[in-house]
Amino acid sequence: MEIIKKGVAGTMQSSDLMVFVEPADTLRLEIESTVIKQFGHLIRAKADEVLAKNGVTAGFIRLTDRGALDYAIEARIETALQRASAA
């Protein structure tokens, strides 16, 4: 999947997250979270997994997390990616 423009998904509500995607030459993932100390490792693992599954090799992906569960992280990233890759 190729990132050709900016894409956003999610909300700033508790237990949700915002995902910001934009084109870039390399793949860069930035995570900010209210539970970074407790769950930073699991959030990163899930984000990496979703990016790999979608074949994303380049793009700047930014997560602003408010304690979302894994399925919400997956859904929000997928949506942001689709919005950023659609013509």
């Binding site: 508790s14 237990s15 209210t34 539970v35 407790q38 769950f39 408010r66 304690g67 979302a68 569960l69």
Partner: peptide, 11 residues
């Protein structure tokens, strides 16, 4: 009686 959601912001 303790009332408490099971999860708060993933915790």
């Amino acid at each position: 009686i303790i009332v408490c959601p099971s999860i708060r912001g993933r915790l």
